[in-house]
Design a protein around this nucleic acid. Sequence first.
DNA 1: CCAGAATGTGAACGTGTGTTCTCAATGCGT
DNA 2: ACGCATTGAGAACACACGTTCACATTCTGG
Lengths: 201, 201
Amino acid sequence: MSRPRGFVEADVLERAMQYFWTNGYEATSMSALTGYLGLHPGSLYRTFTDKHTLFLRALEHYRDTQTRQLAPTLLAGGPVLPRIRTILIDYLEAAADESVPRGCIAVNTVGERLPRDEAAGRIVQEILALVEDGFRQGLEAAARHGEIPADTDVATEATTLMTLLQGLQVVVKAERDPRRLTRMIDAVLTRLAEPVRHVDA
Amino acid sequence: MSRPRGFVEADVLERAMQYFWTNGYEATSMSALTGYLGLHPGSLYRTFTDKHTLFLRALEHYRDTQTRQLAPTLLAGGPVLPRIRTILIDYLEAAADESVPRGCIAVNTVGERLPRDEAAGRIVQEILALVEDGFRQGLEAAARHGEIPADTDVATEATTLMTLLQGLQVVVKAERDPRRLTRMIDAVLTRLAEPVRHVDA
DNA sequence: CCAGAATGTGAACGTGTGTTCTCAATGCGT
DNA sequence: ACGCATTGAGAACACACGTTCACATTCTGG
C-alpha cells in the first residue's frame, strides 16, 4: 500500500555493483553514487541501510549474476577446454579493450578490504569456491570425454586454474599487453591435455 | 648545518611500508600513521611532501628490499626448484600463521588503487617484472642443471609462476587453509620437472 | 659563543565524507 | 473520495580526514 517505489531494487543493485567494480569501496563516495544511481540519499539509506551494507549486497549480486554462470557455461555441451580458454582469454581482451581495466570485483575487494572486512571476506570466499567448483565440474566432463587424461587430479587442477585466474586479474590491471599472458594460458591448457609419462634418465 | 634529524629516513620508510602493507592506503589515516611512526605531522610532511608521495616511496621501498631479493635467492647455488617451492609455501604458511594475513602490498595496491593511480601502477609493474625475471633466471639455471627439461620455454613458465604467485596472494587472504594450495603448488612444480611426451591415441 | 637554519610540537584549518532530518508529493486500500 | 503510510527531495549535521601553521627547541658552521 501507499506510494510505490520509483526504482527497481535489482536494477539499483546492478548499477551499484558496476560503480563499486570500477571505483572500489573507499573511493566511491555516497554523493557520487547517488548521482550515478539517480537516487537521493534518503531513498538509498531507507532501502539499503548503509554504504557498507549496499556494498555487500552488490558483492552478492556479483556472485549470483557473474560467478554462478561459470559451471553452466562450461557444461553447455561440446569440448570443455576451448571454453575454458575462451573464458580466460576474454578477461585479457576485455582489460585490453576497456580504457579503464577494472579487473574483478572480488579480487579488488581482497586487496582493498581484506582481512579487515570479514563480511566481505565471506562473500569473496564463496565466489572463489564457485569458480573453483565450476572449473572442477568442467574438468570432470573433460576427463569423461577424453579431452584430458582420465586419471587427472581434477580437484587439484581446478585449484590451479582458479588461482591462475585470480592472478590474471591482478596482472592484467598492472600490465595490459595480453600477448605474453595468452601464450601462458595456451601453455597451461596444452599441458593439461597432454598425457604425462615419466621418462627414466 | 642546523639541527639534525631525530629519525632516519630509511627506518621511517620501512615502518610506513609495514603499516600501508597491513592497512592499505585509504584506511591508513595520517594521524594513525604519525602515531605509529612516532613522528609529528610537521616532520612527516616536510620530509615526504604528501600522503600519496610517502605511499609511493613505501612501494618503492618494498620493490627494492623485498622483490629484488628473489633472483639472488634462487641463484644462491644448489637445486632451484626446491627453492621456488619454499618461496611459494612460505607465503602460505606466513598467511596461516599471521593473525591478520596481509598478502602482498603490490597485489593489494592493484586491487585498491589501480588503474586510477598511475604512479603506483608503474611501480607495481616494475615489481611484477622483477618477480617474473627472477623466476626466469631461476628456471634457466634449472634447465642448465637438468632439473627441468632443457627445451623448456622458460620465459612462458616464468610468466605462469609469476601469475600463479599473484593469484596465491589473493586466495590466501580469503581462505587461509594452506593444504589444498600446497598440493596445487607441488603438482605444478612436479609437472615442470617432468619431461612431457605426446602419446598417439 | 653567537647567528641562523632546520627541527620537534601540537593546535588549528578547510574540506569532503557518510548519514540523518524535515517536508511536500504520491498513490494504494477502503 | 479520502486517510495515511511511504516515497522523492535536498538541505543540514557531526565528524574525521589530510594538511598547514606558528612557535619554541636544538644543533652546526664560522
